[in-house]
Lab assay of single mutants.
Amino acid sequence: SIVTKIISIVQERQNMDDGAPVKTRDIADAAGLSIYQVRLYLEQLHDVGVLEKVNAGKGVPGLWRLL
C-alpha cells in the first residue's frame, strides 16, 4: 500500500542520514506522488502516532520522523 511505502521511505532515509528527519518533498519524490497527496498521508500517520512532525510554520518545509 502507499502508506507502507511512505513508512519504508522515511525509515530508509532516516537510516541513511543518522536519524535525521525527512522532508515532505523528498518523501513525495521517492513515492512518485505530489507533495499534497503525501502530506495527507503523513498527517494521517501522525494522527495515529506513527510519525512526528519535527517542525511547523507557514512556508517551512515539513520534516518528519518515525516514532
Score class of each variant (00 low, 15 high):
residue 26 D to H: 06
residue 25 R to N: 08
residue 62 G to I: 15
residue 41 Y to C: 05
residue 52 E to I: 07
residue 30 A to H: 06
residue 30 A to L: 07
residue 9 I to P: 00
residue 42 L to C: 06
residue 4 T to V: 11
residue 65 R to A: 07
residue 16 M to F: 08
residue 6 I to S: 00
residue 35 I to M: 12
residue 49 G to W: 02
residue 34 S to A: 06
residue 6 I to D: 00
residue 28 A to W: 03
residue 44 Q to N: 07
residue 12 E to Y: 13
residue 39 R to Q: 11
residue 56 A to T: 11
residue 32 G to H: 07
residue 35 I to T: 06
residue 49 G to M: 03
residue 16 M to N: 10
residue 28 A to K: 01
residue 14 Q to I: 04
residue 44 Q to L: 14
residue 51 L to S: 01
residue 22 V to C: 05
residue 32 G to N: 08
residue 64 W to M: 00
residue 19 G to E: 04
residue 63 L to I: 04
residue 16 M to S: 09
residue 59 G to H: 06
residue 43 E to T: 06
residue 47 D to G: 09
residue 34 S to C: 06
residue 33 L to Q: 02
residue 66 L to A: 04
residue 17 D to C: 15
residue 7 I to E: 01
residue 24 T to H: 01
residue 18 D to H: 14
residue 47 D to V: 13
residue 39 R to P: 00
residue 25 R to P: 04
residue 51 L to I: 09
residue 31 A to E: 01
residue 61 P to Y: 14
residue 62 G to Y: 15
residue 37 Q to V: 14
residue 11 Q to F: 11
residue 51 L to F: 04
residue 58 K to H: 10
residue 58 K to A: 12
residue 55 N to G: 10
residue 37 Q to M: 14
residue 34 S to G: 07
residue 66 L to C: 06
residue 23 K to Y: 05
residue 63 L to P: 02
residue 54 V to W: 03
residue 46 H to Q: 11
residue 54 V to C: 07
residue 40 L to C: 12
residue 13 R to T: 03
residue 39 R to G: 08
residue 46 H to G: 05
residue 51 L to H: 00
residue 7 I to K: 04
residue 4 T to G: 10
residue 14 Q to P: 02
residue 20 A to H: 10
residue 9 I to A: 06
residue 58 K to R: 10
residue 10 V to N: 00
residue 18 D to A: 11
residue 1 S to E: 12
residue 9 I to N: 00
residue 46 H to C: 15
residue 15 N to V: 09
residue 24 T to M: 03
residue 9 I to K: 02
residue 46 H to M: 10
residue 5 K to W: 10
residue 21 P to N: 03
residue 21 P to V: 06
residue 61 P to I: 10
residue 52 E to Q: 08
residue 2 I to H: 05
residue 19 G to R: 06
residue 34 S to K: 06
residue 44 Q to R: 14
residue 27 I to P: 00
residue 48 V to I: 15
residue 38 V to E: 00
residue 11 Q to M: 12
residue 39 R to E: 12
residue 50 V to W: 05
residue 14 Q to G: 05
residue 25 R to I: 09
residue 1 S to A: 13
residue 35 I to E: 08
residue 1 S to D: 12
residue 4 T to R: 14
residue 59 G to P: 04
residue 15 N to G: 10
residue 22 V to P: 02
residue 1 S to L: 11
residue 16 M to Y: 08
residue 29 D to F: 11
residue 56 A to C: 14
residue 41 Y to S: 01
residue 67 L to D: 04
residue 18 D to Y: 13
residue 45 L to K: 02
residue 40 L to P: 10
residue 44 Q to C: 15
residue 44 Q to F: 15
residue 50 V to N: 01
residue 49 G to V: 03
residue 2 I to E: 03
residue 65 R to H: 04
residue 17 D to M: 15
residue 54 V to F: 05
residue 3 V to A: 09
residue 3 V to N: 04
residue 30 A to G: 07
residue 44 Q to P: 02
residue 67 L to Y: 11
residue 5 K to P: 00
residue 8 S to K: 14
residue 51 L to Q: 01
residue 56 A to V: 11
residue 3 V to E: 05
residue 29 D to L: 12
residue 45 L to T: 01
residue 16 M to W: 07
residue 18 D to I: 07
residue 38 V to Q: 00
residue 54 V to L: 05
residue 44 Q to D: 08
residue 15 N to D: 09
residue 47 D to I: 12
residue 37 Q to N: 06
residue 36 Y to C: 10
residue 26 D to I: 06
residue 19 G to Q: 06
residue 31 A to H: 01
residue 62 G to Q: 14
residue 53 K to F: 06
residue 37 Q to I: 15
residue 35 I to L: 11
residue 20 A to C: 08
residue 61 P to W: 13
